[in-house]
Amino acid sequence: MWRHIASNGVTFLIVALFMLGGIILWGKQSYQAAGPLSEAICVQVDRGSNMRRVSKNLEEQGAVSSGTLFRVGADYSDKSSQLKAGSYLVEPGASMQEIVDVVTRGGASTCGTEIVYRIGVNRLSIQVRELDPSDNRYVEKAQFNPAVDEIPALYTETKADSDTRFRIAFAEGVTSWQVVDSLKGMDVLKGEVPEVPSEGALAPDSYEVKPGDNRLAVLTRMEQAQKKRIADAWAARRDDVPLKSPEELLVLASIIEKETGVARERGQVASVFVNRLNQGMKLQTDPTVIYGITKGEGVLGRGLRRSELRAETPWNTYVIPALPPTPIANPGLASLMAAGNPENTDYIFFVADGTGGHAFAVTLDEHNRNVAKWRVIEAERAADN
């Protein structure tokens, strides 16, 4: 009898173990399987929150099929204590395992609301925008110029929100003085800037910052990024380009940056200046003359005078027979690469063509015809105004 009972007990234990193993296997497969989410969502993790609250939120939004299994999986992988505050994008079909990784990885938030300080060549603008998870695109909520516009209440409210992300984006062709002047006006940053970084030393890009970040630390990040870009462009340059150093490549890139905002033209503009350098011709480019007047401190805001085109400054390429002594702006990576790898052309001249681009020419006669066409366009535009 006892043998029979023992036999039944062993059988029951084996069945129970099999069932437990099956449950564990099912749980693991469910935890790793694609989730039920059909559209991307933005999940906010508040400071001081826990996996129970997060799992409930995910369950309510239809991102996980079981909040309990989500928490068990997080506990099993030792990630329950690694929850990070922020706003996170959860992609369609994300598994519980992938969602746990997202909310415990840390670093920058991947969705929600952000304030972008845009440093442009002509002005600073501030944009408040929010990510629409359905198409992974930002929707603008407000944009204003702090120098002339009234500060909207939305900006003040959003800035005070602890989950708001902050980003500084500055355009190619902005001068170092313009960058520093703009950073000084951003009240989310702190710290003094004792001197303006050298011209061309800052990499135009988008940089995420946090309230209280030091301005010098932000500038250091920009300088480090630009050093790498210059080194990469110098290493990738053509052997026949008449540039003696990375510094000369940077100078030429800054001129290219100021001469065209059309991406497909950079190689052609670079070819004009390289051809002129190879032939011992003066570069004769207006942006260098303007820099000799403003030293990069703001925008000239008017046309050049004949006397200014004849004035002897170190940057007046209508007078000096070579590259100016310093860059005239902060060029982006594309212009740096174009300076080291210009297109193979015979172009010596270019002039605006009225479309935002330029008309290029090999001979002076051809160039003069292009200039005449541009003068007609200028006259028509002046008449319309």
Score class of each variant (00 low, 15 high):
Val45Trp: 02
Asp46Lys: 03
Glu130Ala: 08
Pro152Lys: 02
Glu150Lys: 00
Gln44Met: 13
Ala383Lys: 14
Ile126Cys: 02
Ser49Lys: 03
Gly35Val: 01
Ser49Leu: 05
Lys244Pro: 01
Lys258Ala: 02
Val251Leu: 05
Ala74Val: 01
Ala233Val: 03
Ala334Tyr: 06
Thr288Asp: 09
Val272Tyr: 09
Asn136Gly: 07
Met51Gln: 05
Ser87Trp: 08
Ala160Lys: 07
Ile230Tyr: 00
Pro331Cys: 03
Phe12Met: 15
Ser66Tyr: 14
Asp232Phe: 02
Glu208Ala: 05
Ile151Pro: 04
Asn57Cys: 07
Ser162Phe: 10
Val188Glu: 14
Ile14Ser: 02
Gly173Ala: 11
Lys295Ile: 12
Val102Gly: 00
Glu199Thr: 02
Ile23Thr: 12
Ser109Cys: 06
Glu192Trp: 15
Arg229Ser: 07
Gly106Val: 06
Ser176Asn: 09
Arg375Cys: 11
Lys228Arg: 12
Gln224Tyr: 08
Gly112Met: 08
Ile126Trp: 09
Ser198Met: 15
Arg276Thr: 10
Thr326Asp: 07
Ser134Val: 13
Val10Ser: 11
Arg306Asn: 08
Pro324His: 06
Ser335Gly: 01
Gly212Leu: 10
Lys184Pro: 10
Ala253Asn: 01
Thr164Met: 09
Val188Trp: 10
Thr110Arg: 06
Thr363Lys: 05
Arg129Trp: 12
Gly301Val: 01
Gln32Ile: 12
Ala322Lys: 14
Leu249His: 05
Gln127Ser: 14
Trp315Pro: 05
Ser182Val: 04
Asp346Pro: 02
Arg165His: 07
Glu39Gly: 04
Pro331Met: 02
Glu366Gly: 06
Ile99Glu: 09
Ala34Asn: 14
Gly303Asn: 11
Asn341Met: 06
Thr285Ala: 14
Val188Tyr: 05
Trp234Ile: 00
Arg53Met: 11
Leu89Arg: 07
Ile255Gly: 00
Thr68Phe: 15
Ser66Ala: 13
Arg47Pro: 10
Thr288Ala: 05
Tyr318Lys: 02
Leu252Pro: 01
Tyr138Leu: 04
Leu252Ile: 00
Glu199Asp: 07
Val299Gly: 04
Asp161Phe: 09
Glu39Ser: 08
Gly22Phe: 01
Gly280Asp: 11
Arg302Pro: 04
Gly185Lys: 14
Ala169Met: 12
Leu17Gly: 15
Leu20His: 06
Arg276Tyr: 13
Glu223His: 05
Gly303Arg: 13
Leu309Glu: 02
Leu183Tyr: 05
Arg305Gln: 07
Thr363Asp: 02
Arg123Thr: 15
Pro197Glu: 07
Leu202Asn: 02
Val362Asp: 07
Phe273Gly: 00
Asp132His: 08
Trp177Val: 12
Leu69Tyr: 08
Lys184His: 15
Asp286Pro: 00
Gly191Tyr: 11
Glu343Lys: 10
Ile293Lys: 04
Gly27Phe: 11
Leu202Val: 03
His358Cys: 12
Gly73Asp: 05
Tyr76Arg: 01
Lys282Cys: 11
Gly22Cys: 03
Lys28Met: 11
Glu343His: 09
Asp346Glu: 10
Ser49Val: 10
Pro342Gln: 00
Val196Ala: 13
Arg215Lys: 09
Ile348Ser: 05
Phe360Met: 05
Ala74Ile: 06
Glu60His: 12
Arg71Asn: 08
Asp365Gln: 11
Lys295Cys: 12
Thr313Tyr: 11
Ala203Met: 14
